[in-house]
Amino acid sequence: MVVDPRLLRGALQGRLIVSVQAPQGSPMRDPSVIAAMAEASLANGAVGVRLESPEHIGAVRQRCPGALIVGLWKRVYPDSSVYITPGWEEVRAVWAAGADIVAIDATARFRPGGEDLASLIERSQRDLGAPLMADADSLENGLSAAACGCQWVGTTLFGYTESTADQRPPAWELLPLLRQQLPPETALICEGGISSADQAARALAAGADSVVVGTAITGVDLQVAAYVERMAAGR
């Protein structure tokens, strides 16, 4: 498989990826709005954008043909707590929509229908040639995903799984451990809990090659609600 040079670790070092997403029911969850925010992020120096759903990936690809897109699809299944691109159907749809790299849940949790993570990674790369970002929650799962063939490993799910529910992102302690033990060619992405430029710089110093920031930049709904809640509590 020939990997896009933009996805290589060296091309990402010290660079920002902006997660451009909006929750269900938000007026911001409109393909044209998502595409505009993505274009603004790229125009101001972001190396790429992280997008949710084939519809939004397609809208950004049309508006920003040269964009580096990390794509995923959040889908909920009754038999599993895995929801970030949980299976083959979602991987195939994200790739077909125009993503350059597909982000998948790389935790050890039971997947919908009992699908095996290693088999999903192998099939995605064999049948599609799709590079993958492993959204991990622990050292063990990050290393396992890399060993199975994921080109990027992210700390995305640290603090968000049942086994890490007592932890709070950013994954300051996890980053240096992953960097020390991941293969040299595997890109390490800090994602989750980064709320300032100083924290992003700290993540790089801790071993991350690139940092994903979402809510602090594009999370209008959550940011406004947090201000309103805090101000109401102070009245």
Score class of each variant (00 low, 15 high):
residue 158 F to M: 09
residue 120 L to Y: 04
residue 124 S to W: 00
residue 62 Q to A: 15
residue 144 S to T: 12
residue 225 A to R: 14
residue 233 A to K: 14
residue 127 D to V: 15
residue 123 R to Y: 00
residue 184 P to K: 12
residue 212 V to S: 00
residue 136 A to S: 15
residue 153 V to D: 02
residue 46 A to H: 01
residue 51 L to H: 06
residue 26 S to E: 05
residue 186 T to C: 14
residue 9 R to S: 01
residue 116 D to T: 09
residue 192 G to D: 02
residue 134 A to D: 08
residue 36 A to R: 13
residue 29 R to D: 09
residue 216 A to H: 04
residue 204 L to M: 09
residue 135 D to W: 06
residue 216 A to G: 13
residue 200 A to I: 04
residue 175 L to Y: 04
residue 182 L to S: 06
residue 131 P to H: 11
residue 57 I to D: 07
residue 95 W to I: 08
residue 75 R to T: 13
residue 72 L to E: 03
residue 170 P to A: 06
residue 176 P to Q: 06
residue 163 S to R: 12
residue 18 V to Q: 01
residue 126 R to M: 04
residue 9 R to Q: 08
residue 119 S to D: 14
residue 165 A to V: 11
residue 214 G to E: 09
residue 231 M to W: 13
residue 65 P to Y: 06
residue 51 L to P: 09
residue 233 A to S: 10
residue 12 L to W: 06
residue 73 W to G: 00
residue 43 A to M: 09
residue 118 A to I: 07
residue 76 V to H: 15
residue 221 D to M: 05
residue 80 S to Q: 03
residue 66 G to A: 13
residue 44 N to A: 15
residue 13 Q to I: 04
residue 41 S to H: 10
residue 220 V to Q: 11
residue 222 L to R: 11
residue 126 R to I: 03
residue 35 A to R: 07
residue 122 E to P: 01
residue 89 E to S: 14
